[in-house]
Design a protein around this nucleic acid. Structure first.
Lengths: 163, 163
DNA sequence: TCACGATTGATGCAGTTGCATGGAGTACGG
DNA sequence: CCGTACTCCATGCAACTGCATCAATCGTGA
């Protein structure tokens, strides 16, 4: 008979994972919002685009990079376009598809957000853990997820990489 | 001048925290949903209620226990009531307020969900970490949150405590 | 070349969330 | 007793999410 009852340690880890993540995420999102920035998803998308060749990606690729459902990606792109941060371009090779290209305004915003985002992460994560502890946390979290290896170095690096 | 750039370790920890949490949560929620259960928030609320004196709480208390905004709690209660899992009762001592009382159906569901929930946690967390690792993860996460100490032992225990 | 299955992307709909506000009741100083 | 400030809870509205489905196009095997 299968073991149904998680150890107390596992239950405690679960609850903390849920609570701490949402608390930290809410805090960071709220801070960026206060500063007049759009949601994080927007930033992540802009980062993917600016990292890409020629600053453009197929929606499908964006979708895979960000691990988002198709409709979420589609609507995220809508918003980027509405706000002039990206533009849809036709894809001649495959008429079903399209390209999404980051605009100058998009690049500018991505950079500015990157700085604010980095600062927020440092404030709410970096400053609370030593590098060794952070690395250890990574290791433990990786054991839970079939995790994030697949996904690139991520967003934050861009904002941070400006020395 | 303040340090804006998080260490690579901190950035990596951040991204994993976000990704792993949402992945694990989605998985568990989806599993419970497949099994025909309502969302987790429902379960947590039922657990709070069944733990409380006489199986009833003021919405405000529920709100504080669950760390939810007031309007979320209000609507969560609506749903519980709609589904016959709880009932609103008047509060004679304070006419502004009310009591929310869990019903028999609510208690029954709470128990059944508890078992499924525990199994899911064991499957997606417990089985992937040793007790020592889980404890270590708790410790690290606690350093990030002004964390979950305040909130009771939590939900899961109930489902699990039935041997 | 055609038919069929798969891929790409959009969208209608219902349910949920955040935000701001409102209405009812309480507490308390004067 | 009254006025003011506060607490408790609900709700309108706009934005967002998940789900299912659709239209268009592609690619492949016969």
């Amino acid at each position: 008979m299968m073991r149904r009852k998680p150890s107390l340690e596992a239950a405690a880890a679960w609850i903390r994972l849920m609570r701490v993540q949402s608390r930290v995420l809410d805090t960071v999102e709220h801070e960026l919002k206060e500063a007049g920035f759009p949601p994080l998803a927007c930033y992540e998308a802009l980062s993917e685009l600016s990292r890409a060749q020629a600053g453009e990606l197929r929606p499908v690729e964006l979708e895979r990079q960000m691990l988002l459902p198709q409709y979420t990606t589609s609507r995220l792109i809508d918003r980027l376009v509405d706000e002039g941060l990206a533009a849809r371009r036709e894809c001649k090779a495959d008429r079903r598809g399209q390209f999404v290209e980051i605009t100058d305004a998009g690049r500018a915003l991505q950079k500015r957000m990157g700085r604010a985002y980095s600062a927020a992460i440092e404030k709410h994560v970096g400053s609370k853990l030593s590098d060794a502890e952070a690395a250890e946390l990574c290791g433990l979290l990786d054991r839970l997820g079939c995790s994030c290896n697949e996904a690139q170095a991520l967003a934050v690096r861009d904002g941070a990489s400006t020395q």
